[in-house]
């Protein structure tokens, strides 16, 4: 990524919401660069400031401090009119889809083109192209109320792409969808990124979404960036407390096994996980207890993680670590 051009730069970004009797610091000292063509993830718990962050990127929210530089333009320096123009090169999709309920699919996709002043004929032509991209050609005349959640999000994606934006901002775009639909929408985003070269910013509270499509990720916690890096790196060696919490996601309860030594084993696709555990147990001659497992079988390779409870006696413990070291299986002791 380093050789690519920066697409979005956030410098010392801060946002405070002030009203008569309240004062909320939603963002503080956010510094990050998103490069052209990457899929960048922003993850955090609810209320961390993710939506505020993404709304600052297209200046729907004006930052109180710091700068947003989009495609070499400092957004704080452009006039209102120019800002509207710039927004046409940043598409955005939402958790609740936000389609116009009184317009059919085709009219929804034409909407941003009408805003941009494109002729009706050209807008329709473009809309049909996009319907093809998102695979909904047969739903051109359907109204949002007649579509499923996944189909609505596809329409929203087509709509966001209508003005040929350079960036697509996705705020919890799959959070209202079931796992299968989520996967198909993420697949579509990946295709769009690959085929159209559009930079994608994915906001989510689910680590699985980040793992599925992102190249890099920023973890945001209590208004600040806690950690930032390549997804694999963050996933395998989470440094901050919040990162560990998100990586473990469903396995928060592990912390409650106090006083017992645990080990997290990471499956990075180089091995198939079954023999790892089985062989380890055989070789080390000690049984292990699996506390948590979240693994996926992709083309016969294991991805994911597993937390095992280590045996009490030190020698068995050493043997297990020796085994993991020897087979170069990424792992870490969890205390």
């Amino acid at each position: 990524m380093a050789n690519r051009e920066p697409m979005i730069e956030l410098i010392g970004l801060g946002k405070t919401f002030e009203s008569k009797n309240s004062y909320v610091k939603a963002l503080e000292d956010i510094n990050l660069t998103i490069y052209e063509g990457e899929i960048f993830g922003i993850i955090g718990l609810s209320g961390a400031g993710k939506s505020t962050l993404v709304r600052c990127i297209n200046y729907l929210e004006r930052p109180t401090t710091g700068k947003v530089i989009f495609d070499k333009t400092d957004l704080s320096e452009v006039g209102d009119r120019e800002l509207l123009k710039i927004r046409q090169s940043m598409g955005m999709i939402f958790q609740q889809f936000n389609l116009l309920m009184q317009r059919n699919t085709l009219q929804n996709i034409c909407f941003p083109l009408e805003i941009a002043g494109v002729s009706v004929k050209d807008a329709k032509k473009r809309a049909y192209e996009l319907l093809d991209v998102v695979g909904l050609t047969d739903k051109a005349k359907a109204y949002p109320a007649q579509l499923s959640g996944g189909q609505k999000q596809r329409v929203a994606i087509a709509r966001a792409l209508a003005t040929k934006p350079k960036v697509l901002l996705c705020d919890e775009a799959t959070s209202a969808l079931d796992p299968t639909t989520t996967r198909s929408i993420l697949e579509l985003l990946r295709e769009i990124n690959k085929n159209l070269g559009i930079t994608i910013v994915v906001i989510t509270h689910e680590m699985s979404v980040i793992e599925e499509i992102c190249n890099r990720v920023a973890i945001i916690d209590e208004s600040r960036i806690a950690e930032i890096g390549d997804v694999e790196e963050v996933f395998m060696r989470p440094k901050s407390k919040i990162a560990r919490q998100l990586v473990f996601s469903g396995a928060n309860h592990i912390d409650s096994f106090v006083g017992e030594d645990k080990c997290r084993i990471i499956f990075d696709g180089r091995t198939s996980f079954e023999p790892v555990i089985a062989n380890m147990v055989l070789e080390c001659r000690t049984p292990v207890n699996i506390l948590f497992a979240d693994t996926k079988d992709i083309d016969g390779k294991a991805f994911g993680q597993m937390v095992i409870q280590l045996p009490e006696d030190e020698s068995s413990k050493k043997r297990i670590f020796a085994y993991l070291e020897m087979h170069k299986i990424p792992h870490e002791e969890v205390l």
Binding site: Q88, G91, N98, F111
Partner: peptide, 19 residues
């Protein structure tokens, strides 16, 4: 949310009113 979507597409206040 629908208004926000329109704003994200660069719609002006008058476009938001009428469209």
């Amino acid at each position: 949310g629908v208004i926000e979507a329109a704003q994200s597409m660069g719609a002006s206040p008058s476009q938001i009113v009428f469209k």
